[in-house]
Amino acid sequence: MLSSLIVTLVLAGCSDAEKPPEPPKEEPQVEVAPKLDAAALAAAAENIALVPSPAEMQRALEKNGIQAGLSAMVPERKLKMDIENKDVIAVRTGVVLADALLTVKDAPKEKLVERLAAVKAGVAALGAGGDIGAVIDDLTARITNDSVSRDDLVKELDEMHGAIIPELKYEAGERCVPLIQAGSWLAGSNLVAAALSTANNTSAATELLRQPQVADYFLKYVAAEGEGKAPDEVIKQLDGTLKKLKEIASKPSLTIDDVNEVKAQTDAVLGLL
């Protein structure tokens, strides 16, 4: 019995040995993205996606339970859009855009319509009024008729914001994009700081205001592009504010004094517009 098993195994082994060797299988070539180190990342990084949109800020506020009463915290702004300096119009447009987006949930109807009208005027002054103007007109009509819910409005304004930036980039040039973002970010930070200060909420402050790279991005932009584009006192104030915001935002956690300082600094810049 054992001997026949051995014979069978030997024969089986022999028969395998007689088979021609199979050619090596070709493994499909797998290309894997290399791991990059911090220096390589920093050297090549583009800032195109760095600045959060006001709509994104609005969602972060909501998730941190800071939503109620925001509209009442937006000061009366009479920002003229019929001026010659397109850079200033771009910053102002960013400001009113943030005002509209951040307060969409609780703003009184007429206030919201007024803020959207300011966005429309800014966008038109920058040369991109057509399609976006029509969208704003449609939204305004539905707000006036109470035929759109505030939740749907958040989504629609978000989509509109998504369309404004590329259209303005196309119509008014690449240069206006960081200026609009700067206006929105400053107005957004100002409003967030006001809400956090009122709520005395420092844990949310750390989550919402800790953006040193964004402050740094605008600081570099002001240094590179600001000279001669705005009065010296404006550039000086903006530079000082951004440096202070960067310093505060670099802290591991923020105090209520930090929040109040963000409010005061951004108030000072927005007051110059």
Binding site: A33, L36, L41, A44, A45, E46, N47, I48, A49, L50, V51, P52, E56, M57, R59, A60, K63, N64, E207, L208, Q211, Q213, V214
Partner: peptide, 13 residues
Amino acid sequence: EHRIYLVTLYAGN
């Protein structure tokens, strides 16, 4: 080739 984009991400989102 690659592109690198710097992004700020909010906690909670």
